[in-house]
Write a protein that binds this DNA or RNA. Structure first.
Lengths: 133, 133
DNA sequence: CACGACGATGACGTTCACGTAATGCAAACG
DNA sequence: CGTTTGCATTACGTGAACGTCATCGTCGTG
């Protein structure tokens, strides 16, 4: 079962990444698996972080940017000395992401329009063909 | 004025990129500036494409993926031999992008919730301080 | 006409995000 | 008990996306 701890292999199969990737993320301080002897054991927290990492990557964030975002998501783990500052940063990020979504919506609408145009062309091609018969 | 043709320098200032980048995009067949002697002159079409390139990059698309998307946006420039196939690809892309937006919306909501939690903590900290006075 | 600004063309360098051996240890298995 | 299996570390390699440097051609201007 998932006793809250997963080996590197289990992680790889679950999230479709290579061992190299997980070790690399640890080296970059994005993940913090515990050690049983030499072996890495990944916790629930590591899995949550990995999901966010993979999501971040799909939106073109660099690993360094993702690391900073992860810190925002896990402030609860630490003292909240600079909580206020953290919240400021989070607000900025939120603004960025909402702007991004706007842009994405625009791109989607553009592509949709392009598609409609393309379908119109196809339709007219069919008509021509029919007329030629 | 903008006589529909811009030099490499004007392009750089307008879109905040380096000459190297524009030449690189040309080498990768993302842009097709015309030549006056040796010098490149960028057309309206190049500018439209560049905008899409920069937008694509902000969403983590590779230049190769962007090149394929650009072809979708500019099918009109060419013969439409494989128009039907092109439309299929466009539909897939559209699906991807809509899924992406869904995911982004989820990420935004997560961050918002995190923010509300943070603000609550801040508030309770203020209360504690007041109670201690 | 010398000269500096602008642009072109190589060619090599760099950063990021891993891939890919080569080698070693340690538990598990036949 | 030897061997396979799983994971570890170390180190060098790689593709993408440019940066940087050297060198060269060509205008326009004082």
């Amino acid at each position: 079962m998932t006793e809250d701890l997963m080996t590197i292999r289990e992680m790889c199969e679950t999230y479709d990444v290579t061992p190299r990737t997980l070790r690399f993320y640890e080296a970059k301080e994005l993940l913090f698996p515990i050690r049983e002897g030499q072996k890495r054991l990944f916790t629930k927290r590591d899995r949550a972080r990995l999901k966010l990492i993979l999501r971040g990557k799909r939106f073109g964030f660099s690993l360094e940017e993702i690391r900073q975002l992860l810190d925002l998501y896990h402030v609860g783990d630490q003292q909240m000395t600079q909580m206020t500052r953290t919240i400021e940063i989070a607000r900025e990020r939120l603004g960025d992401m909402e702007a991004r979504r706007e842009e994405l919506t625009q791109a989607i609408d553009d592509l949709k329009e392009q598609l409609r145009w393309g379908e119109k062309v196809i339709a007219s091609m069919k008509n021509e063909k029919k007329a030629a018969e």
